[in-house]
């Protein structure tokens, strides 16, 4: 790959990783029942997870790329690893789709359209998972820029509503236990597994440099989350925000372009939707690639089967 192509590909990967990191985290931001200290411990643990992933995923990539057809121990290790990561990916995808459906069901969807919406959403995720890398990457880049603009516009428009006193977070509520809470593990560390696999298996190996894009992308995603969390915090304060469902969405609804003009909250739905779409699609794609190491011909059907499985799970739920 030429240097120019590598640079372009890096930008796409950053966009993809950023959107993946946002995922359904904003919808499921672990504020409720955990107190205001979560606003600090979340980004801290996210950065810690990124560092862990940066160490783990090259090894995962090496394990998965190396030939193991006649090396039984390596094949077993790879198989166990693949099964574990596939389970995590499926769990993340199902949670993501479920959260988006719950959020849209409460805010956007007309009555009775949850089932067709979830079907179409999962179909779009499956198409993205099966699409060539360049298509998914290109889509991610376009959507990432649009989402960044949306978040920035909402932040700037919402600035007149901010109260400086809400910005003073009480550090005494921050405790080490928060870092280890199950919520943070589920939101931060687990989703890194499918992301690491996705990049580890699909990115050409360049010493030290193949880690850069997903790491930067994850940091960019954390940055977006921080801006959204900051907006929520400065608008409502930590305690009131904790009492709301989907606090960022409520914070954005407060933003208005003048008294009589429309509310730009419509822009926030773009971020929520696209982030969930990409997280679901990358989870499906990572399972497909893992399967592809063992059953190359059957691998192309994996995203469709996963989509169907998640749809059934959503319907039964």
């Amino acid at each position: 790959m030429t240097r120019a192509k590598t640079k372009r590909r890096g930008l796409h990967q950053i966009a993809l990783a950023a959107l993946f990191t946002v995922g359904n985290t904003l919808l499921r931001f672990p504020w409720k029942n955990t107190g205001a200290g979560i606003s600090i411990s979340f980004p801290v643990s996210a950065i810690a997870a990124v560092c862990a992933v940066a160490l783990v995923y090259p090894a995962a990539g090496k394990l998965l790329r190396a030939p193991f057809r006649k090396r039984i121990p390596r094949m077993i290790a790879a198989g166990v690893f693949c099964a574990a990561v596939s389970a995590v990916s499926l769990f993340c995808a199902a949670r993501c789709a479920s959260d988006l459906l719950a959020f849209f069901g409460e805010t956007l969807l007309p009555r009775g359209t949850e089932v067709p919406f979830s079907a179409l959403f999962l179909a779009a995720a499956v198409c993205l998972a099966r699409a060539p890398r360049r298509s998914t990457d290109g889509f991610a880049l376009i959507v990432f820029f649009a989402s960044c603009v949306a978040v920035a516009v909402l932040f700037l428009r919402g600035a007149p509503q901010f109260r400086a006193e809400y910005g003073a977070v009480d550090f005494s509520v921050f405790s080490g236990a928060d870092v280890l809470s199950g919520t943070l593990w589920a939101e931060v560390l687990l989703p890194m597994a499918p992301l690491a696999v996705y990049f580890g298996v699909t990115t050409p190996r360049r010493k030290g440099k193949s880690v850069r894009s997903p790491v930067f992308g994850t940091l960019a995603g954390v940055g977006i989350l921080l801006v959204c969390v900051l907006q929520t915090l400065l608008t409502f304060g930590a305690e009131y925000a904790a009492a709301l469902s989907y606090p960022y969405s409520r914070a954005v609804r407060v933003v208005s372009v003048g008294q009589y003009a429309f509310r730009p909250e419509i822009l926030s739905y773009l971020l929520d939707y696209s982030a969930c779409l990409f997280r679901t699609a990358v989870c499906f794609a990572s399972v497909r690639r893992l399967f592809g190491r063992f059953l190359p011909r059957a691998a192309k059907w994996v995203p469709a089967l996963l989509g169907l499985g998640v749809f059934i799970y959503l319907y039964l739920r």
Partner: peptide, 11 residues
């Protein structure tokens, strides 16, 4: 409580 419902704007 009535005002905190989803339909009425928080603002």
């Amino acid at each position: 409580d009535f005002l905190s419902g989803n339909e009425i704007p928080l603002s």
